[in-house]
Structure formats: structure tokens, C-alpha cells
Design a protein around this nucleic acid. Structure first.
Lengths: 260, 260
DNA sequence: CGCTTAATTGAGGAGTATCAAGGCCAGTGG
DNA sequence: CCACTGGCCTTGATACTCCTCAATTAAGCG
């Protein structure tokens, strides 16, 4: 269950990347990264809970989770759905305790990164620092975008944005951008979008009637991207950039800085 | 226009703090902090704009600003109102360019912190690192809370929360918690709360009719806190903690870590 | 194959947005 | 000093989005 990432390994990745196409990395993580353990979470189980002492960051290796926060009154707001390559637990940094719960929507596996270790990398390497910073800031940017959606958009527009966002994330992982599974329930999706589950269901049905998508339970097919772009209010598929993933589909870390 | 913060100065603050009451700081910033310049922004002018190259962080010394983001379609979402002690510009870290505009709602003065400098402090001192991290994470937490408001709450509840939040922030700065000015327009407030300006106006009028608050143009008085707590849906005034300010009312930096 | 949970669909209503008209206020220039 | 002006605010009437409640069907899971 251990996955040591060595400098040699990193160098290898570096070579492969340079050979491929993109600008060569300018810096290679000089550290011998410590062993990185994994953890499995069964469907319905919690990876971490709000209030729990913050010690770990998690990188999703495979599976899906929902992050959500509960106010004191049982108000629940789903703050995001995490798939492979996403990081879970960042909200624990400020207070020393996780602020959101994360529950697996299917059997899921994550890498475990002890946070003190992350801090050490961050302090000892300019790139590590940059990476951690960028990751946190990315979280901010994502939340901000979601805030804009919740504050200014109509239900249909939010739904279109959500579908396109998920599409892009899956595409970026090497999966189909037009067919995927919505592992969350309509209720969770509604919570994420600031809608009721009935409204979500109606919206999906309507989009299907109009020939924009095809829905059958949890499986979705996007049929008419231009229509979705129009609904989402974007000229084309040009949302904010997806950062280089920290981890690939096989579970290898990708600690290589790009030239900038 | 220069305000050098010296180690001696910090030590002095430390003594004063310890003499007062609170747990003594465990660590003093060992660095000679570089000179810190100020910048004035007139009402209506921009402190920084989205897309602009990210070089500085700003700490509000006095005045008020609104942060907002504009989508490609002219959709505007106000993401926050910044008063003394708040930090502006954090959203620039991820992409190297600011993602939100910040405009002064009144004549405003800020301290200018060159970000490379911040990174240096962060790397050279565990406390500096912690401070920067905590600040970023705080931003995340705040946005998250706002997301919950936009996603799950009714207009009246959002308004109550907003009033109580502002009340607490002013109180924390040493001002009255029950009387303050809403320097933003109804439209900006509406944008922040995900409402139209008419709804905002109606809500304020209603709260006044019910004796909960008193409004006259931009000046507001909170008359019935229990009623506001009830509307906001909190048992009492127990929201998330306000972090130690980084700067005091006189413009002195407070780089002293507390025991924990 | 039942049982439980999730999803769809409909009818009706609450909550906000939209549209429109007028009032208030500060700044401006006669 | 006062009228003028433009932006901001308030208030009302109406429309519409979305929620609530309810009934039914479909889908998961033992």
C-alpha cells in the first residue's frame, strides 16, 4: 500500500513530458518524497468530517466524493464533487479542523498526504510552495465561480454550466466528454446548484425533450454542445483553465514544474 | 509615506499584548520587515482590476471597497466588501493576474505588500508561512459561507446574516456594533446577496416596519439583535471566528503569533 | 422478489424579479 | 439662493421562476 515517489521517477516523468510537446519543466523537485499511503473509502462512508482535526490532505485516485457543509440547523450545502485528481481537505488549513464533510458516492481510493509533510515541502522548495499556494488559490477561484452561478444565474443556466464543467473535467482525465455518470443523487445536485431535487429533475427532462441531452437515471449524454454553451451563456467552451493534475490516472504524482 | 516595521516594534507590541490579557505569543517574527508603502484610492477608483498582473497584496488601512467579478456578458457579482484590516488581491495568486476588481466606495487607504516579499517571508519563517496560508484559507472559508447563503437561504435570512456580519466586523475594529453606514449602493448589496435592488430595499423597509432595524439611506441601526439572530437562523451571535487582524487602526502591523 | 430509496411528473402557491412611477438627495451651475 | 440634473432609493402592480406538497413510477439493494 506504499507508493514511494523518487527523484528518478520524477526525472522520468520530466523526460516523457519534454519528449511529448509542452515546454520543458524548469525545476525538478529535488526531494526524496516520503512514502505516500493510500486509503479506501466505501460508498457512503466519510473520508473526513467537519470538526475533525486537520492532519491530512487527500488526492482522489479514483472514485467520486461529495463535499458539503452543514450549518447548525441541518441546512446542507454541497460545495463540490470531487473526482480523480481533485484535492480534498484544503478547508482544514485555516482553523486546524476540516470545515466540510466529504462522503464517497462510490467506492473510492485516495492518496494520503500528511499536511506537516506538505508544509515542509512547501518551505524547502520554491516549487512546492508555489504548488500548495496555487492549489489553495484554485480552490478560491472555483468557489468564486460557483458563487457567481448561485448569485446571478437562472436554474437552467446553472445546470448547463454544471454539465459542461463535469464534461470538461472528465475529458481532461481522458474520459468521454459527452457521456458520463452523475454519481450524485438529484438531491445532492440540487443542493450544489441551489435548487430543489424536483427542479433538477424537471430541468433534465426538459433538456432531454429539447434534444440537448439524453438522460437515463444517472447516465447522461450531452448531444448538443452549442445549445449547452448558449444556455450556459458562454460563447464557446472557454471556461477557466484546468490546472495540471497533481496525480495521473495510474496514481503517479506529477511533480514537474513547467517553464513560465 | 514609509512605515518600516522593525523587530523592536514587534517586540513592543508583544509586551503590550502579554500585559493585557491574552495568551502570550509563542513566536516573534524574526525578520526585519521591509518598508511598507501606502496607497490612496479615491471614491470610485479601482485599487486593482481583473486581468491586471498580480504583484501586490493590499491591506485596507481605512475606507471601504467592493470586490466583484464580471463575466464575459456583463454579469456582475459582488464577492465582498472590504473594510479596515481586510486583505485585497488574494485571488491573483493562482493565475498571476487578479481575478476580481476592487473599487473604493469611499476615499480609502491601503498598505501595499509586494507579493514576492510575502512569499519570501512565508518561506523564511514558519510563522510567516502559517500566516499567509491561514489568510488564504480564511478567504476560502468566507466564500464558502457566502455560497451556503446564496444556495440555501431566503432573502430575509441573507439580509439578516449580512447585517450581523458587518456588525461583528465593525465591533471587532472597535466601532459600534449597532450603528454603521452601508457605504455600498442597494444595487451592490443586492448583487452581493443574489437579489435585486428592489428586493433589498423592500427587505430593509420591512425590517424597519417590524422594529428590528432602523434605516435612513445608508445609515443603519440594529435595534433587535435577538430578532436578527432568529432571522439569520443562528442560536446566538456565534458565527465563525474573526482572525486576529494583521493591522490595527493606526496602521501598525501585528505580526505576533498566539500560543495555541 | 419485496422493500427502501430515488426519480418523475403534476397542481398550486410563495417568493422574487421585472416593469414602472415617483420621491429623495447631493452636486452643479445659473 | 434656487432650480436643475442625474443617480439612488422607495413603493406598487404584475409576471414568472422556482418551491412545496402530493401521487406515482422506477431503480437499487438486501
Amino acid at each position: 500500500m506504499e507508493n514511494a515517489v523518487t527523484a528518478a521517477h520524477l526525472l522520468h516523468r520530466n523526460d516523457r513530458r519534454a519528449a511529448a510537446n509542452s515546454p520543458a519543466p524548469v525545476e525538478i523537485m529535488p526531494l526524496q518524497l516520503p512514502a505516500c499511503s493510500r486509503r479506501s473509502v466505501r460508498r457512503g462512508e466519510a473520508l473526513c468530517s467537519a470538526g475533525e482535526s486537520f492532519r491530512m490532505l487527500y488526492v482522489v485516485r479514483c472514485g467520486t466524493l461529495k463535499s458539503f457543509l452543514m450549518s447548525h440547523h441541518g441546512l446542507v450545502q454541497v460545495t463540490g464533487f470531487r473526482i480523480a485528481g481533485d484535492i480534498v481537505g484544503l478547508d482544514g488549513i485555516s482553523t486546524g479542523a476540516y470545515q466540510t464533510d466529504a462522503i464517497a458516492l462510490e467506492d473510492t481510493e485516495v492518496f494520503v498526504l500528511p499536511f506537516p509533510q506538505c508544509e515542509l515541502w512547501s518551505r524547502e522548495s520554491a516549487y512546492g510552495q508555489h504548488l500548495l499556494m496555487r492549489t489553495l488559490a484554485q480552490e478560491i477561484a472555483g468557489n468564486r465561480k460557483h458563487m457567481l452561478a448561485l448569485g446571478t444565474m437562472r436554474a437552467e443556466q446553472r445546470m448547463a454550466m454544471f454539465l459542461l464543467d463535469f464534461s470538461r473535467r472528465y475529458e481532461h482525465l481522458g474520459y468521454s466528454r459527452s457521456r458520463f455518470l452523475l454519481r450524485m443523487t438529484r438531491k445532492d445536485l440540487g443542493s450544489y446548484l441551489g435548487l430543489t431535487l424536483e427542479t433538477v429533475s424537471r430541468l433534465l427532462s426538459r433538456l432531454q425533450r429539447e434534444g440537448t441531452i439524453q438522460v437515463q437515471g444517472k447516465s447522461v449524454a450531452l448531444l448538443d454542445f452549442p445549445a449547452l454553451w448558449r444556455l450556459a451563456g458562454v460563447a464557446s467552451d472557454c471556461p477557466n483553465p484546468i490546472l495540471e493534475p497533481i496525480i495521473d490516472r495510474l496514481g503517479n504524482f506529477l511533480f514537474a514544474a513547467r517553464a513560465r
